[in-house]
Design a protein around this nucleic acid. Structure first.
Length: 657
RNA sequence: GCCCAUGUAGCUCAGUCGGCAGAGCACAUCCUUGGUAAGGAUGAGGUCAUCGGUUCGAUUCCGAUCAUGGGCUCCA
């Protein structure tokens, strides 16, 4: 229990402290959101910081609270942190987490505190409580937080010895805090107190609780202490905080939009796919509409691969377990593989990867250096065991189709080949409207195979390829796969969310394990290097991303129904059918709705199915042999001859719009 | 796998403090032949996720199982 009487030393009048430390006459230089200011004294500096919405400082690349104003000497510039900066956001939200913890302690005195950091979109705090929180509790906690904010109590920092802190927290029964303190390498730790609530914290914090202008508690979830499933499950409350109510509102609207676009919901509404309990979790059933979109994507993918010099393959869904032993997957990957099955006393395994099959095809005949680079590509369906709790619609499944390719190259060809792949990736992804990328180059991890020299050369080749293609990238040190360095590409969808789909991996390992070789120009036998690469990653997942990216409104080239012909009355059925047949004969995916319903109703139904073009057929059109077009956006296009509409459609389809 | 929540018609959801189960949409039939986002009537549709327990009686209470959802890698 928290001792009620424990309080840190009360703040003396803040300004008095500052003026003690600042000699009269010197000015304080402050930068706030790229603007430079000079204040004649600390009072003015503080006033300026407040006015400009700053609530913390950055001095010498270190974030600090306002109390650090006293450390400033005239030759230094302090940066006033506002919500606009990443550091500012983190401080602000971290303070919100503390205020939440305070509220929880008030309402649930026996709750023990774990950690409460700021995260990308908000903050959370983990609590050890006897009973999990209910949604009603969350409302109460939020109300209590509002009270605490209203009090506007100052956050006061105090530095104490580890021992003192440990004693304090063990007296309070805060065993998690004691554990945290023990793990801190420094001699001293800092505590923050506001309105009688003390927490261990590196800080800094906003000056007072009143600075928290807009926040909302979002959800409750279980989370293991220190993220380790062997530890106790704690209760986590997620929340978010913004500089003002307007931004919070926008964020909550964004969450609504995300919900509206949820591919599981749209998948059902548009009849694209389903997951059936009696078939099995994580296994996708593609309905006709979804299958048609997939077919269109696959056709595009195959055509472009052939143009880019790839050879297409098909390989089986299972193979002898021995193959996976040889490839190393059985050793490295077993927990994600299904149990083997016995066939005529030989163990077989359903495939988690396509690579060994491609190697088998490579090895089916002798290869010359003239054959390289040899590009094998396959839409290969693989099965991987995913723990039940992590399955999620199309995004995380147990059976999926990789747009996989394995390219066998000579070492000196890596750079050029990777450049080509990068070009290809950008081409394919931009076709789906993904124009922004984040690219990561992952280098050698601790546990890895291959010589240091190989790694260096391959990493340098990847780097060179990125630079030659003029792509910005970041280095992810030590995040490569054990068998080679890789490039990962994340795409940004129409809501600005990042998804990793493409990956390009250099592999020194498999060619070695399978003794893959080619005959070099000097007639010696050499080992090629393999490049694994996927553009869309998993077709299932990519499809899920596309659904959310387009909000279900697929562009014409992908839309399962491109045109729906709607008749006004039954006497127009004949002509409507003729129009639809004519469009279909030209390869357009056209359907009719000749139902005995009013046109307004038919338009509504088709609009909700997100059909890109509606063709309206009535007396006028039937007599003049024309058609009226209504776009998905609601825009109408006056009567035009079929040929004109067809031309317009075909243009759009061939431009993949 | 773990924590919590949820599971009622094809979909979205109401409901029963334990006594034969409801709405809207979708579907079928009929009326209406209607010009740019919902015309009207009638009807069909459910082992209330599954299995077990308590009870005279369970969709409802209890337990287990399965599935779905939010999280479990953001480190004071």
């Amino acid at each position: 229990m928290r001792p009620d009487n424990y309080k840190l030393e009360k703040p003396r009048e803040i300004l008095v402290i500052y003026s003690l430390f600042l000699k009269g006459g010197s000015t304080i230089k402050i930068r706030i959101e790229d603007k430079e200011f000079e204040a004649p004294g600390p009072e003015e500096a503080l006033k300026l910081l407040r006015e400009r919405g700053a609530f913390a400082l950055k001095i010498d690349e270190k974030v600090k609270g306002f109390e650090a104003l006293k450390e400033i000497s005239p030759d230094m510039t302090a940066e006033g942190l506002t919500f606009a900066s990443k550091e500012g956001k983190d401080i602000y939200r971290h303070s919100a987490a503390h205020i939440m913890a305070h509220a929880v302690k008030e309402l649930f005195p026996s709750a023990r505190l774990a950690i409460g950091p700021a995260i990308e979109e908000g903050f959370y705090y983990d609590f050890d409580v006897e009973k999990p929180f209910t949604p009603e509790d969350i409302v109460r906690i939020e109300e209590k937080m509002k009270e605490l904010v209203k009090k506007n109590s100052p956050f006061v920092r105090k530095v104490v010895s580890k021992k003192e802190a440990a004693d304090l927290f063990s007296k309070m029964g805060e065993n998690y805090k004691v554990e945290l303190i023990e793990a801190i390498p420094d001699e001293t730790v800092s505590l923050y107190e506001e309105d009688g609530f003390v927490d261990l914290c590196r800080g800094p914090h906003i000056p007072g609780t009143g600075r928290l202008k807009a926040f909302k508690l979002i959800s409750i979830a279980g989370a293991y202490w220190r993220g380790d499933e062997r530890n106790k499950m704690l209760q986590r409350i997620y929340g978010t905080a913004f500089a003002d109510k307007e931004d919070l509102k926008k964020y909550l609207e964004f969450l609504e939009e995300v919900k509206k676009r949820d591919h599981r919901r749209l998948g059902r509404e548009l009849d694209l796919f389903s997951i059936a309990e009696d078939v099995g979790p994580g296994l996708i059933l593609w309905h006709p509409n979804g299958a048609l979109i997939r077919k269109t994507i696959e056709d595009f993918w195959r055509d472009e691969h052939l143009k880019a010099g790839y050879k297409l393959l098909y390989t089986p869904h299972m193979a002898k377990l021995e193959l996976w032993r040889k490839s190393g997957h059985w050793d490295f990957y077993r927990e994600n593989m299904y149990s083997p099955m016995e066939v005529e006393e030989v163990e077989y395994e359903i495939k988690p990867m396509n690579c060994p099959f491609h190697i088998a095809i490579y090895k089916s005949s002798l290869k010359s250096y003239r054959d390289l680079p040899l590009r094998f590509a396959e839409l290969g369906t693989v099965y991987r065991f995913e723990r039940s709790g992590v399955l999620h619609g199309l995004m995380r499944v147990r059976g999926f189709t990789q747009d996989d390719a394995h390219i066998f190259v000579r070492e000196d060809q890596i750079g050029e080949e990777v450049q080509k792949i990068l070009d290809f990736v950008v081409f394919i992804l931009s076709t789906f409207g993904f124009a922004d990328y984040e690219i990561y180059l992952s280098t050698r991890p601790e546990k890895s195979v291959g010589s240091g020299e190989n790694w260096e050369r391959a990493t340098a080749a990847l780097k060179m390829a990125l630079e030659k293609n003029d792509l910005d990238y970041r280095i992810d040190p030590g995040e490569g796969v054990f068998y080679g360095p890789k490039i990962d590409i994340k795409i940004k969808d129409s809501l600005g969310r990042l998804w990793q789909c493409s990956t390009i991996q250099v592999d020194f390992n498999l060619p070695e394990r399978f003794d893959v070789s080619y005959r070099a120009s000097d007639s010696t036998e050499k080992r090629p290097i393999m490049i694994h690469r996927a553009l869309m990653g998993s077709l299932e997942r990519f499809f899920g991303i596309l659904i959310e990216h387009y909000a279900g409104a697929f562009p014409v080239w992908l839309a399962p129904v491109q045109v729906e012909v709607l008749s006004i009355a039954e006497r127009h059925s004949e002509y409507a059918k003729k129009v639809a047949d004519g469009l279909r004969a030209e390869g357009v995916r056209a359907e009719t709705n000749l139902e005995n319903e009013k046109i307004g109703y038919k338009i509504r139904v088709s609009t909700m199915r997100k059909v890109p073009y509606l063709v309206i057929i009535g007396d006028k059109e039937a007599s003049e042999e024309t058609l009226s077009v209504r776009k998905r956006s609601g825009e109408t296009m006056g009567p035009m001859p079929i040929s004109e509409f067809l031309g317009l459609l075909k243009n759009e389809i061939s431009a993949r719009r």
